[in-house]
Amino acid sequence: MAAPRVSSLQHSKFPIIRDHFAVAIGKSSVVVKTVAVLVTIGYFFSFITSAIPYITVTPGYVMPPNFRVYSFIFYSFVELHFWHVLADISVIVLFGKLLEPLWGAPDMLLFFVINSLGVGILTAFLYFFFYLVTLNEAYLFSVHIYGMAGYVAGFCVAVKQVMPDHCLATLPFGKLRNTHIPLTLLVFIIIMNLSGVLPGSYPYMYIMGLIVSWIYLRFYQKHTNGNRGDMAENFSFASFFPSQLQPLVAVISNSIFSVFVKVKLCNKPQRKYDVSSPTTITVTLPGTEPHDAERRKQLALKALNERLNKPESTLNWPSLDDDGPVSPTAAATSASGDAGAVTGPALAAPPASQIATPGFKDGSPSAANQSMGPSQENV
């Protein structure tokens, strides 16, 4: 009885998922639709076995005499499995929904081109390095680099940059946030690769995608205010690793960055001091967008308000002022002592309307002081 229920549940949810997916693609921009269509066309071309060496990157064929450098343009649109196509299109649509409103369609297309070319070239050179070490020609002519693993890595890096503290799920060992996704997905990809589900080049492409996308977003992406890159502390290279490894990674990455600055591959970040401010000195780092600073400010204010609104247990301390409010414990003790001391009938205080305060009607302080008794002046 359980199997028909599961199958009927799957059949009932599949049209809903399909409709949502179709609506998401329909509302996407031209860039998202174009890339999704090209990935679908590349999947159908993968059924032509003789075309695979020409539309995928084979490290031995991109060098002379074959010189198939055009394969760096087509390889990212080729997938050999349909579920890879669905995963790629889902990432493209999510990228368009989350980041295209912030970046714009031209910047999104530029990021895709830089990521695709960078991942293809670096992965091919990595296999050249494997060949030089092992002298195994299989690394040159039996390897086919294809797919959008590098773009998936770039999407993870971009989401970490924009929304690093967004919580995706609460797990038994802690909260899974966007800042944990790049490294977590890398571990998952390595496991899938060892089990034979993903091709051999997929982990290398993903790692190269992390490096290329981080370098572009960290140092070279141009913002609306004219600055380039994002020098925020929570977007450093060490922030991709667990907190226990971050000091070691920071030392290595900073040393490599110093070498790149000396050889003029990277520019040293410059700090701008606003000395015209009358109260404080404002330090501005290039690449820090105003909307990013405002977003972090709002998150900090929200966390502070939540902490302040938490109910705190307050203790009723006894008052040091004789005329001030008395704590409930002291009031009970005083009431019991007065009850034992007074044996006669209780004395009722006269109403306030019968208390004469001559000279106080005009509201002058001198009239009030004249109406007060000598015992009240010492209080």
Rank of each mutant, 00 (worst) to 15 (best):
I190A: 01
I191Y: 14
I191Q: 12
L194E: 08
S195Q: 04
V197G: 00
V197D: 00
L198Q: 03
P199T: 10
S201F: 03
S201P: 00
P203M: 04
Y204T: 06
M205F: 02
Y206D: 11
I207P: 03
M208P: 01
M208I: 00
G209T: 05
I211T: 07
V212M: 01
S213H: 03
W214Y: 15
I215K: 00
Y216A: 06
Y216P: 04
L217D: 01
L217R: 01
R218G: 06
R218Q: 04
F219T: 01
Y220N: 02
Q221V: 12
K222E: 15
K222Q: 11
H223C: 11
T224F: 08
N225V: 03
N225H: 08
N225E: 12
G226I: 09
G226E: 03
G226N: 03
N227R: 02
N227F: 03
N227A: 12
R228D: 02
G229V: 02
D230E: 04
D230C: 15
D230H: 06
E233V: 14
S236Y: 06
A238F: 02
F240E: 04
F240Q: 03
F240M: 12
S243P: 01
Q244H: 07
P247W: 09
S253H: 14
S253K: 06
S253E: 09
N254D: 11
I256P: 07
F257K: 11
F257Q: 13
S258I: 01
V261M: 06
V263P: 07
V263F: 15
V263A: 10
K264R: 15
L265Q: 14
L265T: 03
C266W: 10
C266H: 11
C266E: 05
N267G: 12
K268S: 13
P269R: 09
P269S: 08
Q270E: 15
Q270H: 08
Y273L: 15
Y273R: 14
Y273W: 11
V275N: 08
V275I: 12
T279R: 14
T279D: 14
T280I: 10
T282Q: 09
L285W: 10
L285F: 08
P286S: 12
P286Y: 00
G287E: 08
G287D: 09
E289F: 01
H291A: 08
A293Q: 14
E294W: 07
R295D: 08
R296L: 13
L299R: 15
L299C: 11
A300F: 12
L301I: 13
A303P: 07
A303C: 11
E306R: 12
E306Y: 05
R307T: 06
R307A: 14
L308W: 06
L308F: 07
N309H: 10
K310M: 02
P311R: 11
T314D: 04
T314I: 13
L315P: 07
W317K: 09
P318K: 09
L320K: 13
D323P: 00
P325T: 09
P325G: 05
P325K: 11
P325S: 07
P328D: 06
T329M: 08
A331M: 10
A331R: 09
A332N: 06
A332G: 04
